[in-house]
């Protein structure tokens, strides 16, 4: 993205072209670009396959909230007894079949790794 006040930059691009972050599956698709170097089409198909939904479903905040709740992948509006922050990233790593650096470090530091 780039320089500019949040309404003119972050919000404008997010509304015009963004996937929606953790309201939808934006963070999950981003992780496939970041960990596997996948292009946008491939990363969306990969995530859709892992979640058992269509590519179009990935940007539906209604359906994705339910899926994120079912799989415990972190929610925009936090609910009691559901995964948040680091806890959610443990589940995201499992569902997507990827290593998340901060999860690996957490395991190392708590002696739960291996």
């Amino acid at each position: 993205m780039g320089v500019g006040d949040p309404p003119g930059m972050a919000i404008a691009h997010s509304t015009a072209s963004g996937m929606g972050g953790m309201r939808t599956a934006g963070d999950l698709v981003a992780r496939m670009q970041m960990t596997r170097g996948m292009k946008i089409g491939e990363s969306k198909e990969y995530v859709a396959g892992k979640l058992g939904v269509s590519v179009m479903d990935l940007v539906d905040p209604v359906l994705m909230t339910e899926i994120r709740q079912d799989l415990n992948l972190g929610l925009t509006t936090p609910l009691p007894n559901y995964a948040k922050g680091m806890e959610a990233k443990f589940n995201i790593a499992d569902v997507l079949g990827i290593e998340i650096n901060s999860v690996a470090k957490f395991k190392e530091r708590t002696k739960h790794g291996g």
């Binding site: 972050a10 072209s17 963004g18 996937m19 946008i40 940007v59």
Partner: peptide, 10 residues
Amino acid sequence: MGNEVILTYD
């Protein structure tokens, strides 16, 4: 809809 992309921030 369906053409959305990933946003990274500086």
